[in-house]
Design a binder for these strands. Structure first.
Length: 495
RNA sequence: GGGCCGUUAGCUCAGCCGGUAGAGCAGUGGAUUUUUAAUCCAUUGGUCGGGCGUUCGAAUCGCCCACGGCCCA
């Protein structure tokens, strides 16, 4: 930010900084801390004021000054570091000459300081550091939001996440949990002997999902390329190569609208396991989520947006058709076998239909409209129509559907998995259907990926795979209403 | 895409039957050696999101636009 944009508060602070530059190194980097606020709280909270006075403990802490109360020749302030906050007690006569009046008293809330001193307790019982020295490590030029209400403007929280993180404990907590979730996934899969891999984000043929890609251009090759919409087809090439258990925690990109559940870039876990089927994936998912919640919260009961979810109980399982019947009294199982009757029912629900839609696609439209948001308790929905599952293996008993499931919790899709289609001839036929759909105007339909077919022709073992939406999972486990609350820098329009 | 709500000091918010903009916190000056939303006295600070219109006069009424939020598709 330039001087001409400064308000009075910034101008004052800039003047202080300029005055400081003239006398001392303004941004020193030689202060070594040896303690974190939360560790000190944990270690010394139980000690009495007297005990701490009898055996003084010297520590060095550093962090941002969040509050300050000056009472003449003594003052209190709170210092915030990555672990939490701790109070400091600063007395003029206990500091080197000049440090109090010409230093500390002139600094501002928001400044980053280093403090050495002894651990003490105040008369009111708050653990504090009695400062022996205090140095300014970084001058903050921008004033922080008000101490009591903090930053509440959601737009500002997203646009200036750094301020949100400084001010809001809940935001810090959400992203700590996000990190812990990803940690847990890595260790869980690693423990199951999965190998973490990295596949391209720049794709010459976007594939692995039905979605519109972002397009960009490679200058020296003079070719259009796409940001990946999913890593699936590359991961399955690795299965052909003999990597029998792989996973990738991937950023994928889809060129679609923004919503409380959609960000144009999002994080997915995809994992694949040879000699497994979709039921193995469901079992793994159930086990992993149960252990995850226990590992994170030491409970399997999760509160999300006021509702309670028990992940200890077995997750429900039902087919797409069963779920439609459960939530729609006015259509029968036989009707759902009939294209005409199902189409009429969808029209009754005001679902816009294309002529090209077959029975399976219409069933899924009905499912999304009437079932999805009602799947609150953890539920696997299985037997997705082959028409809408171009990469999934057909069911042996009923080729109209595939060996596929999606997982729902809180009315929201979290995961999608299936027994993989490893019949190269069937896959080629499915791709051709997708290309036809694209010709008739389906912008989300897939391209024909010849190299992927070639890979399958070398032989991919029977395999099952799954994708889990990490952002949505984090939303659920952090009680966040929107995806923007679980992405550090969510996409917003330019102001 | 449609509907509703919001945008006023650095932050959190009043003001909205039109009559020259206010509080708290932060800041500034002063008092204060155990405070914790510290306290006490004094005080600075605003293109009222942007534009156009109505009017003698618009933060306030109307229209358009931008950004955000919620709901619906």
């Amino acid at each position: 930010m330039h001087d001409e944009n400064d308000n009075d508060l910034v101008t004052q602070r800039r003047q202080q900084l300029h005055a400081m530059r003239a006398t001392v190194p303004a941004f020193p980097n030689n202060f070594k801390r040896d303690a974190l606020a939360a560790d000190l709280q944990a270690k010394y909270e139980g000690k009495t004021k007297e005990a701490l006075e009898q055996t003084p403990v010297m520590v060095a802490i550093a962090g941002r000054m969040m509050t300050r109360r000056i009472m003449g020749k003594a003052a209190f302030a709170h210092i915030q570091d990555m672990s939490g906050q701790i109070q400091i007690y600063v007395r003029r006569d206990d500091l080197p000459e000049g440090h109090y009046n010409s230093g500390f008293k002139k600094w501002d809330i928001g400044d980053i300081v280093g403090v050495t001193g002894t651990v003490m307790k105040t008369n009111k019982g708050e653990l504090s550091i009695h400062a022996a020295t205090i140095v300014l490590l970084t001058k903050s030029l921008q004033p922080l939001p008000e101490k009591f209400h903090g930053l509440t403007d959601q737009e500002m929280c997203y646009r200036q996440r750094y301020v949100d993180l400084i001010m809001n404990e809940q935001t810090r907590k959400t992203f700590k949990i996000r990190s812990a979730i990803i940690d847990f996934i890595r260790s869980y899969l690693s423990n199951e002997h999965y190998m973490e891999v990295e596949t391209p984000m720049l794709h010459t043929i976007p594939g692995g999902a039905t979605a519109r890609p972002f397009t960009t251009h490679h200058n020296s090759l003079d070719m259009d390329i796409y940001l990946r919409i999913a890593p699936e087809l590359y991961l399955k090439r690795l299965l052909v190569g003999g990597m029998e258990k792989v996973f990738e925690i991937n950023r994928s990109f889809r060129n679609e609208g923004l919503s409380p559940r959609h960000n144009p870039e999002f994080t997915m876990l995809e994992f694949y396991q040879a000699y497994a089927d979709y039921e193995d994936m469901m079992n793994l998912t159930e086990d992993m989520l149960r252990k995850m919640t226990w590992s994170l919260f030491e409970t399997n009961t999760i509160t999300y947006q006021g509702a309670c979810y028990d992940l200890a109980r077995p997750f429900a399982r039902m087919t797409v058709v069963e779920s439609i019947l459960k939530f729609n009294d006015t259509i029968s199982a036989t009707d759902l076998q009939s294209l005409d009757k199902t189409r009429a029912f969808a029209k009754q629900l005001n679902i816009p239909l294309e002529d090209a839609y077959g029975l399976g696609k219409i069933q899924i439209e009905i499912f999304e409209k009437t079932v999805e948001t009602k799947l609150l308790a953890p539920t696997f929905i299985t037997h997705y129509p082959t028409e809408v599952s171009p990469l999934a293996r057909k069911n042996d008993d009923d080729p109209f559907v595939t060996d596929r499931f999606e997982f729902f919790i809180g009315g929201r899709e979290i995961a999608n998995g299936f027994s993989e289609l490893n019949d190269s001839e069937d896959q080629a036929a499915r791709f051709r259907q997708q290309v036809e759909a694209k010709k008739t105007g389906d912008v989300e339909a897939m391209y024909f990926d010849e190299d992927y077919i070639t890979a399958l022709e070398y032989g991919m073992p029977p395999t099952a795979g799954e994708g889990i939406g990490i952002d949505r999972l984090v939303m659920f486990l952090t009680d966040s209403a929107t995806i923007r609350d679980v992405i550090l820098f969510p996409h917003l329009r330019n102001k």
